[in-house]
Design a protein around this nucleic acid. Structure first.
Lengths: 296, 296
DNA sequence: GTACATAGTATTATAATACAATACTTGTGT
DNA sequence: ACACAAGTATTGTATTATAATACTATGTAC
């Protein structure tokens, strides 16, 4: 799963007190459902520093409940002990990643968290290489254009250009959505082998997000299969009611699927037919341009 | 300094091995210069979990040197021991915040870091409240518009709308620049008392970033003082050569300066005179609209 | 205004976890 | 092919993180 050395041997947890809140493969997925495999022997390497995980567990809680949280809120939501929450909150406040309202004593995430995203964006070439093509796509379509990467059973959005006329900015960057029911996800899945696709769908919670969400495995596989012929993937209101999206896969060096670009419009203004006719050429062209740019 | 309870008593470090890499007030500033006050008695509370700080220290290293780093690189840049770096890198890879190229064994920040910025942006109302006005400002000016918050001696950019014609996306969100030499910084400073401004300038490293950077304290204070009369602050090529910026302060409830909006143009195309004549009204109107929106 | 309940804060003894040192293995360059 | 550097694994030690608990403040009901 995780590439390279640092072979993780099977270690049985030595402490009798019960397990950690969130393990790597138990990090809450996009719906916040935890699949903690507590029964399984924990593959915990002595190199693993548990305190770091706990700190991120505390931060993670805020992404689900998007409001100021008190200590007891966090205790409830993490399952960590009162003392532990106290210490990690103190530490995170001290480091400037959380802010405390001295009156309500509730905490909120601080803007310093953006520094971490900057660390990623400044290091990673993908978003800057893709930028001109994404802008071009937005120009041609006038609609919102997103760039997404696969992450576990989700896509994670790493760049967004809002539609020209929209007067809201969705803070979608850093957000996640399931691979199986998004056009971006299907576009990327289409670059994988059948075995890999199966494995991902097995691991996915094929949950209905809207009345239109496809949850039948075969139906989903069929939609993914069509991508190779069409060059684009679609999802009609499967994630958000009224949202029509179309996407195409981006290849890195070696024709490996690494990302996808999608365009996202809304129902009353657009029909499925229109999306395919007008936007498919744009997403495909954009994805190809980015793939070529990445090859160099 | 840090508001509210959790009174930090003076604790002398008990361990003989020498101190921590980065303390809160010693986090590297925008130029990467560390001002670790190692001599001073460390105000370390037993609630503080040092491992968390070390994890962020490792992540922070990547924002300075924007390329894949090996273990030994990180050892050199953090001053942490080899074992410690090994364990924190392992942990961060395991948690998915760093990625390792199995061949080169070098690590890079992962897109999962964006999840943390999402946690902030989804929770915090400022960026979403401000969005429509920022879009309007970009519309009127056709130029890049930024929203910034004060953080220690810097501003941190929390939203950016690129200029309509530009074909690059600066990954400026999450980036920092000194308060003293940016228009955004000066705009916010103008909302503070003379004592507070002095304290901040005292704590700032008045370093020359370009040949045009004002480093004379009185000259800087004069520029800040003018903001109250004009309603806007300016900085001409003080941070980046060729960059002209103009900003206005944003007030939260209680007329407290909380942020600033700025517009950013480049030298050959614009003159200082033009910026003031054409853009000052826009930044002022935008800042006022956002201030009003925040009041409700 | 007082008493009660709840939430937040401080303290401490305990031992588990993080630690540094070091041995070992793999890779790289000459 | 050899030597050197870099990365990885292991282990005993004790520092650090821990949970329990006592304490204090805050807010609410009567």
């Amino acid at each position: 799963m995780i590439a390279g050395p640092w072979k993780i041997k099977k270690y049985v947890m030595t402490n009798s007190s019960d397990g950690f809140p969130l393990r790597r493969n138990a990090v809450a997925n996009s719906a916040g459902i935890q699949s903690t495999d507590q029964s399984v022997v924990k593959s915990s390497n002595p190199l693993f520093v548990g305190s770091v995980e706990k700190a991120f567990t505390v931060l993670h809680v805020f992404s689900q409940s998007r409001k100021p949280l008190s200590l007891t809120d966090i205790v409830a939501k993490t399952g960590m002990g009162k003392s532990a929450v106290q210490r990690f909150c103190f530490t995170l406040v001290e480091l400037g990643f959380l802010e405390r309202d001295p009156d309500s004593r509730r905490m909120v995430p601080s803007a310093r968290l953006l520094e971490l995203s900057h660390t990623y964006l400044a290091t990673n070439p993908v978003s800057s290489v893709a930028a001109p093509y994404l802008l071009q796509a937005r120009e041609s379509s006038g609609e919102a254009v997103n760039l997404a990467l696969p992450m576990e059973q989700d896509v994670i959005y790493i760049a967004r250009l809002s539609s020209s006329n929209s007067h809201i900015i969705h803070p979608i960057v850093g957000g996640r959505a399931p691979l199986f029911c998004t056009s971006s996800g299907r576009a990327w899945l289409s670059t994988q082998t059948d075995e890999q696709i199966s494995a991902i769908l097995d691991a996915s919670d094929l949950r209905r997000l809207t009345p239109e969400t496809l949850t039948d495995r075969d139906a989903i596989l069929k939609r993914i299969g069509e991508v190779s012929h069409n060059g684009y993937a679609t999802a009609w209101q499967e994630c958000i009611v009224g949202e029509l999206t179309i996407a195409a896969p981006i290849y890195g060096p070696g024709r490996i699927g690494v990302a996808s670009v999608n365009i996202c419009v809304t129902k009353p203004a657009w029909s499925e037919q229109q999306v395919i006719e007008e936007l498919a050429p744009i997403v495909c062209r954009t994805a190809n341009s980015i793939s070529n740019a990445l090859a160099n």
